[in-house]
Design a protein around this nucleic acid. Structure first.
Lengths: 116, 116
DNA sequence: TTCATATGTAACCATTTGGTTGTACGTTAG
DNA sequence: CTAACGTACAACCAAATGGTTACATATGAA
């Protein structure tokens, strides 16, 4: 598995992009269907320009990609980016799990004299 | 496993809180060590008030909890919240995976006449 | 009690965000 | 070719964000 190096700014952009319900919905929809910006705009109670901006935020965060089809721009989620975000959080979980395990060891392991 | 229902606003707050490198670092550190706000503030090149605000943002998002110890407030990450965030992203991955599987089935399954 | 420490909060500021409307431009349909 | 459509972008606005300094409050030490 190839894991790309994400800068702090990259990660900022990913979580920032996910911190809005409309944008999460766009990701959700475009995971299964490739939708034009106009088609997406029709689904939300806001201007086309607003939706277009949301798509741009997602694009900057690499959470979606756009592909030209005639005069339309088809939006599709990038599952790899979603995956990377999930793995980032997994890493936090792992830190915690390792610590919990260490504490467990300290509490149960009474044979060795490594405690201070 | 108990899964709490998260509102859009809850999720907004979680991802918003994670969209800042300082706050991610605070989560990371307090997963292993319980640290006072002052101890945390000492580690970043910004005012105490700024760090205190970051902790407040994390607290509102339930990503950390505070516990009083004498005159200090000890900050500790809440692994359950991190976990919930990770599972949210897993759900997106699952949507994509299911769709990929459906497409795979359509392409490979030539024996049944279920295609439209 | 008094003082120092740890925290919280208010007021302020610059920048970003999330929305708007209007306009310009590229592409396709007729 | 021309008109309609789909998209992009600029200018604007209100609200939120991320930082500051200053002050207020709570707790522990002596």
């Amino acid at each position: 598995m190839v894991t790309y190096e994400l800068s702090d700014t990259d990660v900022d952009r990913i979580f920032q992009a996910l911190a809005d319900a409309t944008r999460r919905d766009i990701v959700s929809r475009t995971l299964t269907d490739e939708l034009s910006v106009t088609a997406l705009a029709g689904r939300y109670d806001m201007s086309f320009a607003a939706v277009q901006k949301h798509v741009a935020v997602l694009e900057r965060a690499t959470l979606v990609v756009k592909r030209r089809r005639g005069r339309e721009q088809m939006v599709q989620a990038n599952p790899e980016a979603v995956r990377r975000a999930a793995r980032l959080l997994d890493a936090y979980e792992k830190i915690w799990h390792d610590r919990a395990e260490r504490i467990g060891d300290l509490l149960s392991d009474t044979t060795k004299g490594t405690e201070q």
